[in-house]
Design a protein around this nucleic acid. Sequence first.
DNA 1: GAAAACGGTTAAGAAATCGTTAAGATTTAG
DNA 2: CTAAATCTTAACGATTTCTTAACCGTTTTC
Lengths: 217, 217
Amino acid sequence: MNNILIVEDDKSIHNILEEFLTKEHYQISHAYEGQEALLLLEKNKYDLILLDLMLPSLNGEEIIRTVKDTPIIVLSAKVSTIDKVNCLKLGANDYLTKPFNLEELLARIKVQLRSKTNPTPSLKYKNLELLNDYHTLLLNNHKINLTKTEYAILKQLLINPNEVISKNKLLDLISLDTPDCDENSLKVHISNIRKKLKKYSSQNYIEAVWGIGFKMS
Amino acid sequence: MNNILIVEDDKSIHNILEEFLTKEHYQISHAYEGQEALLLLEKNKYDLILLDLMLPSLNGEEIIRTVKDTPIIVLSAKVSTIDKVNCLKLGANDYLTKPFNLEELLARIKVQLRSKTNPTPSLKYKNLELLNDYHTLLLNNHKINLTKTEYAILKQLLINPNEVISKNKLLDLISLDTPDCDENSLKVHISNIRKKLKKYSSQNYIEAVWGIGFKMS
DNA sequence: GAAAACGGTTAAGAAATCGTTAAGATTTAG
DNA sequence: CTAAATCTTAACGATTTCTTAACCGTTTTC
């Protein structure tokens, strides 16, 4: 049975959703404001989050930023494109404007749960292990803190560690996280990653392929 | 670069989408009706499909049912929940109603393409194997390092190894990588490639066709 | 048969790319 | 609002790659 966390300050919407989704055999958990949601998310594992953006204490976007390994469907009264794009960029998987239709919500929930059957394992290469928390890299059992961009770059390199990835493709793949990153910026990030790796290993893990891009080595 | 197939009978929408998505560095393919789309999908690999439901000959839903390993975003004028739910149930990954906002579409495209890589097959000819994803050339199991231009030239020759390719056409095809390359420069590159091949094989792989261009031999 | 065009090789100078650093701008956290 | 962290920009030297131009032998043209 799939476990869905509803984060929403309006109690009547909670009730409607709970009644409907329970009938569809989902297990429902409730949070009525942001801090509460973060606490629950720290302690428990959910299969999906239904998130209202307009929360009293904490901005809903904060939750999107924090949650990385659980699909999020945003439910919001904001209909503007900017709001939608922002949420999706931040990491949300879908966006529905209120008032929404329950059948459509159900269908979209199923889409998210369908593609979620294979949770991404941590990426490993030689003595490197990139954890799923979006900023930690293990090298010879040493924890290395990576910035958001460094993590995104290393992740792309580690997905296919033997393949060369062109600079343009790399920039494109990380463009959601860092839209302003260009080739110059990229080489600085690569340099910074190498510097961090050098602390715990003399091996050169990132190899430049002249004129093309980079690969693991 | 990601390859997007647009399936849509309205030509003006094609143009709008192509112009916008090309600017965002996507490669666009077009299909104007269902059968055409199915043919293309059989022959080619796409990273994403933008699908209009109201196709003249074939129902768009047929395409959703057929496609299994490529994410689909449905673009439709149908706003009814039943239609949306049907599509999502059938296997679509997202659903946008016309008229849609291009920025929102882009954000939703990126959600679907997140951390998606597509391996490309290698080009083989006799004892040569050009590994696309590794950006290296194998000759009798020896790894040969090629420069960007050398790689581009050899790739074009190997795509149709039995056909003669004229110097002008060759220069045109690699002009994206090396805009300054002329005939003189080309023959130097060919010479350099031959020199590298000579190290591991006595065979002459690149043959000059007098007055025309080059072919594999 | 002589002149012109073409193909192949070579070497040197020009151009592009990489890696690093530091400073300024921007974002994030407290 | 301030301080810290992160990102971008720009410069530099080192290295690799590319183009240019010369030379020579072969093929084509006249």
